[in-house]
Amino acid sequence: MSDTTMDKSGTGKPGFLSAATLQKAVAFVVLIALVLFFSIFANNFATGANAVGIMQATAVNGVLGVAVTFVIISGGIDLSVGTMMTLTAVTAGLVLTNLGMPLPIGILAAIAAGAFMGAVSGVVIAKLKIPPFIATLGMMQIARGLALVFSGAKPIYFNDTPSYSLLSPESTISKLIPGVEIPNGVMIMFIVAIIASIVLNRTIIGRMIFALGSNEEAARLSGINIDNWKILTYAICGGICGIAGLIVSSRLNSAQPALGLGYELDAIAAVVIGGTSLAGGRGTVMGTIIGAFIMSVLTNGLRVMGVLEEWKIVVTGVIIIVAVFIDIVLRKRA
């Protein structure tokens, strides 16, 4: 019990075999177990092509999960990540297709749009003192509405920018290392995760985010400008949503304005399964990626086995509850 208090009052950075590390390890074991289970019981599951398929199905949820991990560790929540992703995809569409700008500007615009909208959420939360749940619930609708308005409620296609549709499905790494057919969208997820992990564990930004989530009052009393760090946290989250927007719209060769609702819950589920505490102050990016993989392996495996979609949804729900239960048990023991 006393260790829990220590963890709360300290920086909250996970040490060796801390609860977060332990649950991450548990999550990893679950992932391996699922892969083994489906490899044995589902015909045609264990093939290279299916592995690539699973990775591709993980990319968007994984990146959104990383985005919301930042916010959740800081003690907040962001319900707008799904529709924010859509809004950034539409932004890329406007810049590339409607304005005819070059590809790098489209990419930057999507990420900047996400970061800006995230910062707006941050300001609303930090300065207007609106609870994060409410502020981002509002932002979820605002982003969804703006995506529909800006696109005229029609998909925007990237046919004039052929290189855009290759961004996510193409596999650059297979040209460098023959045989490794991992699509760029998946590589982008891994790169985002590695950079996010470094930022969270090795930089002042990370230390501040953990401090906010562990004990906001203590952080304030020690002279930290918590408002600014909060705004930055939501801006980072929004910017990463922009990357997810690029991956999804590149894969579909179109920005689909009606997409995205419900994606926030999948992202939060991945974070929770990966061992990040919804109470804040504790969590890892790699756990989130493992969580996202658990969800997509489960979905893919059950589909390959021919299990009904309805039951797949039930099983995903059970997994989320079990994950949080493990979290509670580990926190009591730690």
């Binding site: 299916n50 999804v248 893919n300 390959v304 021919g306």
Partner: peptide, 16 residues
């Protein structure tokens, strides 16, 4: 939706 349909169909083709 289009993304979920893509992943679903790929899994179904994988199985059959």
């Amino acid at each position: 939706d289009a993304v979920k349909a893509t992943d679903t169909i790929k899994a179904m083709l994988q199985a059959n």
